[in-house]
Design a protein around this nucleic acid. Structure first.
Length: 255
DNA sequence: ATGGCTTATTGTATAAGA
C-alpha cells in the first residue's frame, strides 16, 4: 500500500504533473492540498481516465483538498468535526482498512498575527478531533501540508528562521502534541539526517541551493507503525518546468 | 536589501503563500 501527499499549488496549473506522477508512481492513495478550485472545476474525468476515484472539498482561489485513490472510498467527511471553518482544509475517507485524513494546515503568516491565532486554534481543534477519531479508527494516517517544520534539522537555516512561522515554539508544540496521540512522523522512522525538505521557496533559487523546509508530513497511528517499510520525499516533480513549490511525500506500508 | 517567485482575481495592482 502506497500513500502520498502533495501540495500542488493550483491543480488547474499542476494537473499534467499530477497525471504524470500517478502514472509513474501508481500510488494507492494520493492526498492533494491547495487545489484552489471549486468542486465544479475539479478534474474528476481526467483522474478517472488515469484510474483514480477522487473526492474534493474546494473553494475558489484558496485552499482546497482532495483524496485520489485506486480503491473504494467510504465514510467521507469534510472538515474537522465540531470546528466551524469556512476554509476548505480537511477531507477524510476510509480506504480498505485505513482511515485517511488529508489536511492543509493554515500557514499562519506571522507569529502573533490574526492568521497565526487562527492556525493555533485550528491545530487545537484538529488535535481534539483526532483524539476521538483514533478511538474509532486504530489504523489512521494524517497526510498533508502541516506548515510546521518539527525540528531544527527540518529547516535549512534554523538561526535565520527564529521567530518566524513554521518553526515557532507554539507550532512545534502543537505538532508534538499530535505525536503524543500516538501519531508517528513516518519520515523519521527511517531517515535521521538533516537537509531533507519538502518545500523550497520559488525565490532565491531555493531549490537549486536546497534552501528548504520539511513541512509536509505523513503521521501514522500505532496500528500502522509496524507496517511502514519506507517514507521518502520525491524531489523529481520539483525539477520540472513550472513546478509546485512542494514535493510529494510517499509512504509505503506492508500488506 | 524584508525583496527575490508564483498563483488567482471579472486584474491591469493586490493579496497570499511559506
Amino acid at each position: 500500500m502506497k500513500l502520498a501527499t502533495w501540495n500542488v499549488n493550483s491543480l488547474n496549473v499542476r494537473l499534467p504533473h499530477v497525471l504524470d506522477w500517478v502514472r509513474d508512481n501508481q500510488p494507492d492513495v494520493l492526498c492533494l492540498q491547495e487545489t484552489k478550485q471549486e468542486d465544479v472545476k475539479f478534474p474528476y474525468a481526467e483522474l478517472k481516465q488515469a484510474g483514480y476515484e477522487a473526492i474534493h472539498s474546494g473553494q475558489k482561489t484558496y485552499n482546497g483538498v482532495a483524496i485520489l485513490t485506486r480503491h473504494a472510498l467510504a465514510d467521507i467527511t469534510h472538515g474537522i468535526v465540531g470546528f466551524a471553518d469556512d476554509q476548505k482544509r480537511v477531507i477524510s475517507a476510509t480506504i480498505q482498512d485505513i482511515r485517511v485524513v488529508c489536511a492543509y494546515i493554515p500557514n499562519g503568516q506571522a507569529v502573533d498575527s490574526e492568521k497565526y491565532n487562527y492556525k493555533m486554534r485550528w491545530l487545537e481543534a484538529l488535535n481534539c478531533w483526532l483524539a476521538e477519531e483514533l478511538k474509532k479508527y486504530p489504523n489512521l494516517v494524517l497526510l498533508g501540508d502541516y506548515n510546521i517544520a518539527p525540528e531544527d534539522r527540518d529547516c535549512h537555516d534554523p538561526e535565520a528562521w527564529i521567530g518566524q512561522v513554521l518553526v515557532s515554539p507554539r507550532e512545534r508544540e502543537a505538532f508534538e502534541k499530535l505525536t503524543k496521540l500516538g501519531l508517528h512522523d513516518s519520515f523519521r522512522l527511517f531517515e535521521q539526517a538533516e537537509g531533507h525538505f519538502s518545500w523550497w521557496d520559488y525565490r532565491m533559487a531555493g531549490f537549486r541551493r536546497n534552501l528548504g523546509m520539511r513541512i509536509d508530513h505523513i503521521l501514522i497511528s500505532d496500528g500502522l507503525k509496524n507496517k511502514a517499510t519506507s517514507c521518502v520525499i520525491d524531489k523529481a516533480p520539483r525539477k520540472l518546468e513550472r513546478p509546485s513549490d512542494h514535493a510529494p511525500v510517499v509512504l509505503t506500508l506492508a500488506n
